[in-house]
Design a protein around this nucleic acid. Structure first.
Length: 487
RNA sequence: GCCCCUAUCGUCUAGAGGCCUAGGACACCAGAUUUUCAUUUUGGCAACACGGGUUCGAAUCCCGUUAGGGGUACCA
């Protein structure tokens, strides 16, 4: 179906931050291009001068970069093709395929209202299609400035074989009248600009969201009018929220944009995995769920992209996050955690690199985001604040046995000369159990845990103590004993 | 209103007429492991929207209904 002449594109408009839906569409385009050795073009759809902002441009570029989505051409800017757009508009007018329309907003509204009242398709009634020079002159004298409309063929079935949904048909009469291609100030509009730009860039395959289904019909009419080769089209379903609406920044806030995920330290691999797998299924009987983008490239196909919309499930994304943390080496996690540790003012620099990696491997497997790491490794470099414990932890230390356990532990520590080996820690805890007469279990270990870390939750106690080492453990136990004595 | 798209567990999906007493994953529930949380592990709950056809046979094909979504701009 495709070969290396395949040329696809992603054209986000910088009127908002990078959206998850755009990312998924970009991913499918990227995958398709890579699979067939084709070309992936990145273009900024910045024709709307008022809404386009440079901060969004960098947000989009940074987002793609973070996700590992790269392009072969671009970024192209639609706004830079202005002269070309004007040329094509002129050509269309010259050929009688486009014309000036002088309708005011009020007139347009009236048309729509009456159409609606008659249960007709709402839109423009093409009333200025055949304006005489005289009429145009009159409108101009009234101070009206015309928009340019594209003359749609009357009552024509437009069709295409959608790469994802099969044969599609839309009648031109359901398109809401001749579409405006240039505003009264001369700026061209999306449906027109996109056709010119895609054509000029040699785009031969357009994969985009299903919210473009009607635009595709209009664009095909334009391609045909201009006598240009119509690209192949494929329409991906939309991403919905739990209440089954199109996921949008406006309504659903941060979760729709990529920034939140960057800032919170999500692994881009997990986001990519989730988004690809959201409406594409790994072929074969193994029903593989966890994969990398590189693994997907050779086997990607639009054939197993789902036609129905999918609900965005943060819980499932989190599962992907955990799985990808398991796949990521401790070295890599440590490297990526650096900025997050710095931000929380947590430093593990008192530890050797081996010890640091051991710390990471201890906490790595349950992780969802990098931003959870500071909290989890805090125990290794910060002495717990005993005067500010949670209720459960406080009760734990107030237990009469706690005093006994911690006193005994202090004695045993004084007799030890090292805790660096896990076996030494095990022996120590064994002794603590036999000498206090308290069985190994919560009763015995929770007070120790709270004394060391200030919380009953955390990494494996044996590993934790061996990494902390004799000096730190001794110091902390002593502090607790003093604290309990003064209470 | 009109046009278009979609329809399998709560969610993401497998399923292209008999392999389906419908498979997997997330979530949830219960058990085991672990000194805690997490991890790991065993098991459980749970779906073909409805109604008509076609067929020996339908989750799968056709029609209708219903439901959900999208579009309907001098936004993209």
């Amino acid at each position: 179906m495709f070969d290396s002449s395949l040329k696809v594109r992603i054209p986000p408009s910088p009127t908002g931050p990078l959206h998850l839906g755009t990312v998924r569409t970009a991913l499918y385009n990227f995958l398709l291009a890579k699979k067939h050795g084709g070309t992936f073009v990145f273009r900024l759809e910045d024709t709307d001068r008022e809404r386009s902002k440079s901060e969004y441009v960098s947000d989009i570029i940074n987002g793609f970069r973070w996700l590992g989505i790269t392009w072969d051409e671009g970024p192209l800017r639609q706004s830079e093709h202005k002269a070309r757009h004007q040329m094509v508009v002129k050509q269309l007018i010259g050929e009688g395929l486009a014309y000036e329309c002088f309708c005011t907003t009020e007139e347009l509204n009236e048309i729509r209202q009456s159409q609606r009242a008659q249960n007709l398709v709402e839109g423009y009634d093409n009333r200025h299609r055949g304006l005489t020079e005289e009429q145009k002159k009159n409108f101009r004298e009234q101070g009206r400035k015309p928009v340019i409309r594209f003359r749609l063929p009357d009552n024509k079935e437009l069709f295409w074989d959608d790469l994802i949904r099969g044969r599609m048909t839309v009648n031109t009469s359901d398109l809401g009248g001749d579409p405006v291609i240039a505003k009264d100030n001369g700026d061209v509009l999306y449906n027109f600009a996109v056709v010119v730009d895609d054509n000029d860039a040699g785009i031969n395959c357009v994969i985009r969201g299903e919210d473009h289904l009607h635009n595709t019909a209009k664009q095909i009419a334009l391609y045909e009018g201009l006598n240009w080769k119509v690209p192949k089209f494929g329409h991906v379903s939309l991403i919905l929220t739990t209440n089954r609406e199109k996921l949008s920044k406006r309504k659903h806030g941060d979760i729709a944009g990529i920034t939140k995920y960057i800032n919170e330290g999500y692994l881009p691999e997990a986001i990519v995995n989730y988004l690809i797998g959201m409406s594409w299924t790994y072929p074969g009987d193994d029903s593989k769920e966890i994969f990398t983008i590189d693994e997907v490239i050779p086997i990607f196909s639009l054939d197993n992209v789902s036609k129905s919309s999918a609900v965005y499930d943060l819980g499932k994304l989190h599962w992907f996050c955990k799985e990808h943390f398991k796949l990521t080496s401790s070295e890599e996690v440590l490297k990526r955690a650096e900025p997050f540790l710095e931000k929380e003012n947590i430093s593990l620099n008192e530890y050797s690199i081996e010890e640091k990696l051991k710390i990471i491997s201890l906490i790595k497997d349950g992780l969802i985001t990098l931003s959870e790491i500071p909290q989890q490794v805090k125990v290794f470099c910060k002495i717990p604040d005993l005067s500010n414990l949670e209720i459960k932890e406080k009760e734990c230390l107030d237990d009469p046995n706690a005093k006994l356990i911690l006193e005994k532990l202090k004695d045993l520590l004084n007799e030890s000369d090292s805790l660096n080996e896990e076996q030494q820690v095990k022996d120590l805890l064994e002794k603590l159990s036999s000498e206090t007469g308290i069985k190994k279990g919560k009763k015995l270990f929770w007070p120790v845990r709270v004394a060391i870390s200030g919380t009953v939750h955390g990494p494996d106690l044996t590993s934790m103590l061996s990494i902390l080492g004799l000096g730190r453990v001794k110091d902390r136990i002593e502090r607790v004993n003093n604290f309990l004595m003064n209470e």
